[in-house]
Amino acid sequence: MIRRLLLALALVFVASPAQAYWEFGHETVAAIAYRNVTPATRARIDALLRQQKLLDTPTCPARTIEEASVWPDCVKKLGERFTYAYSWHYQNVDVCKPFDLKSACKDGNCVSAQITRSVKLLEDPKVPERERLQALVNLIHFVGDLHMPLHAGDRGDLGGNRVRGDYGIYGPERFNLHSIWDGPLTERAISTPPTIVRVYSPQERSMIAGGSVEDWSRQSWEISRDYAYASAFNGDACGPVPTGRIKLDQATIEKLVPIAKLQVARGGLRLARLLDEALG
């Protein structure tokens, strides 16, 4: 009985981080952005979020930027009302072919296109407040999504969702390559000192936040190929798909932590730049 109890407790505590990027990762991207926008932009963010009742989603509040960062995932549970937006959270760009964003973003149904659309809606004062508010919460969330590499690169496996895997010594059935990067890897990266939730210098912001949404898409796609898939597929992202479960050992995890951490910081500072451009 003691062994069964210990196993049950282990599964509870190991399984819980699998939702980390859904909450911890997105909230951290939002927190970094909030600290690095101008005071005027921060005031306009707060003013829009004070109208969060316009969203008419009482079970999915958006009172703070952290709550707003997970709103687009929260509303998935509301059924048909938001099903049109499911494909807006990712872009399946094949990591084994030349980078081709247009084919993956037909009709604007991908994360990078929706980032650009949200900025345009947010910066137009003629757009009704409800639509600008929804553009704000979408922008906050989608910039986070774009910087999770397996939302940007794919091998015909739903961004690693079909690749079952183990994280270190833990291998509950719910883990796959995608959920490892979504959850425990990103959670460890964010929690590893030094903190990335801070005010960055102008030089740091300039170095990290430069480029276009397409540039950021390509960069996340490259990280998906060179780190996420390569580390899982015996060093060759485009090699044979391993049979059975892939395993990320501790040495591999330690090499991936700085990559995952940098992606969250990039997401936060790039979100700050877009918010300043749209609201500043």
Rank of each mutant, 00 (worst) to 15 (best):
V12D: 11
A18H: 06
Q19F: 15
W22C: 11
E23S: 13
F24I: 14
F24L: 14
I32T: 02
V37P: 02
T41E: 09
R42Q: 13
A43T: 09
A43I: 09
R50M: 13
L55P: 00
A62Y: 02
I65L: 10
E67V: 10
V75Q: 04
V75C: 03
L78R: 03
T83G: 09
S87W: 13
C96M: 03
K102T: 13
K106D: 14
Q114K: 08
T116H: 10
S118K: 06
K120R: 14
E123M: 13
D124G: 10
R130G: 12
R132K: 10
L133D: 03
A135K: 03
V137E: 07
H141Y: 08
F142W: 08
V143M: 06
M148I: 10
P149M: 00
A152C: 08
G153C: 04
D157E: 09
G159P: 03
G160M: 02
G168H: 07
G171E: 04
P172G: 06
D182Y: 04
R188C: 08
A189N: 01
I190E: 06
S191I: 08
T192S: 07
P194M: 01
R198W: 01
V199A: 14
P202R: 02
M207T: 15
I208A: 02
I208W: 03
A209T: 09
D215Q: 09
D215M: 10
S224Y: 05
D226C: 11
A228N: 02
N234S: 15
G239F: 01
V241W: 10
G244P: 00
I246H: 01
I246W: 04
K247R: 15
L256H: 00
I259K: 01
I259V: 14
A260E: 03
A265E: 10
A265D: 05
L274F: 05
L274Q: 01
A278R: 01
